[in-house]
Design a protein around this nucleic acid. Structure first.
Lengths: 202, 202
DNA sequence: TTGCTTGTTGAACATTCGTATAACAACGCG
DNA sequence: CGCGTTGTTATACGAATGTTCAACAAGCAA
């Protein structure tokens, strides 16, 4: 009765693949247990690896959370790009698609909010994470400014209008995720559409 | 050499007063260390009492955080009331004061955001806290609907407009606290004023 | 097959966590 | 003044935390 020679105790993975699986596990744990329950061991268990690997690839939970935020943010950006591309060539339709996509799955998802909250909770404490937040939000606003410009919004007005639209989207998205029963994604889209109309002059 | 008879090792306090001091200590610790660093011991140390008292008056950190949110939310409501009262009797001025007060101290304060984030992080996990969140946000929107009605907004439009204004205020306030360098409180007020103008028809 | 590289494990470490509980002492009351 | 109530402390406890590191083994190269 010998051990099966073809049942390795663990699999080696490419560094990037392992990193990704840990990031995805972190996102799942954050969504399920909240920031408090996202410990190194629980995340590692969720990923099916030992706890030491988190320290090996990241070096701390904070760095893993930051990487998770970065990854999820990239996914959101991709979804927004798809929405814009699907909208066609008319500038107003592209802008509207970019904005209203935030209120449709997979972006309007309480599970995503958990990652955002965990990340926000680190902004005040850690300076490098505050910088990361500034950069990623600046990138979002920059894309919005371009879309606004394509709709004829004067250069001088783009910055403040981009800030306004971003705030509106964030506020609606936040509340939509925190208490889904208060209003619907469709109502959020309607609100956003009306607001965009007042900016682009219909 | 005897001990001074007039130096008690600790003071007894009225239950409500002790509760309040723990709540305020909790808010300070949340602002300083973030949700992760807000343990029973640290909060008790900040309040100048022993750790056991937190369990005695609340029963868990979660309940203390919920109580802290409730207390801070009440303070914010009071500040908003003051702003409205100071604005006089003209409905449009009252509405504008209510909205723009969120971008002025003491409401626009990163320290407050820490309490909000800690509370949000519990909404997904705990049902009773989700209910508390729904109630307090509903109260905010209800006040807004009244102010909108006083400005001539038709009853049928009040709900959606209140949701929109709330989202705009939350988004601006959130970003203002997260990265204060991106835009100023004055710019936030300007954005809010313009948005209110489009709703109330100038 | 043999050897080497290195991703991976598992255990040990010192802290810190939340909670429960017995002993203490402040303060009002008689 | 002494007594009793009870707010408060201090301690102890088990569980869970982050981190470290030596030993192991998977998979590639020769």
């Amino acid at each position: 009765m010998r051990e099966q020679a073809s049942s390795p105790a663990f699999r080696r993975a490419e560094p990037d693949a392992r990193r990704l699986s840990l990031i995805e596990a972190c996102a799942r744990v954050l969504a399920k247990n909240g920031p408090t329950g996202a410990s190194v061991r629980v995340i590692a268990l969720e990923a099916g690896v030992s706890a030491g690997l988190v320290g090996h690839y990241f070096g701390g939970v904070d760095a893993l959370v930051a990487a998770t935020y970065d990854h999820v943010d990239a996914q959101v950006s991709k979804a927004l790009d798809n929405a814009v591309a699907t909208a066609g060539a008319v500038p107003h339709a592209r802008l509207e698609a970019f904005v209203t996509a935030s209120f449709t799955p997979p972006i309007a998802d309480p599970a995503l909010l958990a990652t955002w909250i965990a990340f926000w909770s680190l902004v005040t404490t850690r300076k490098d994470i505050a910088r990361q937040h500034d950069e990623q939000y600046a990138a979002y606003r920059a894309r919005l400014e371009t879309l606004l410009g394509d709709c004829g919004v004067p250069k001088a007005d783009q910055r403040l209008h981009a800030i306004a639209v971003t705030a509106m989207v964030d506020g609606l998205w936040l509340e939509l995720c925190l208490s889904p029963g208060c209003f619907s994604g469709g109502e959020a889209r309607e609100i956003a559409r009306r607001f965009l109309a007042t900016i682009t002059g219909r």
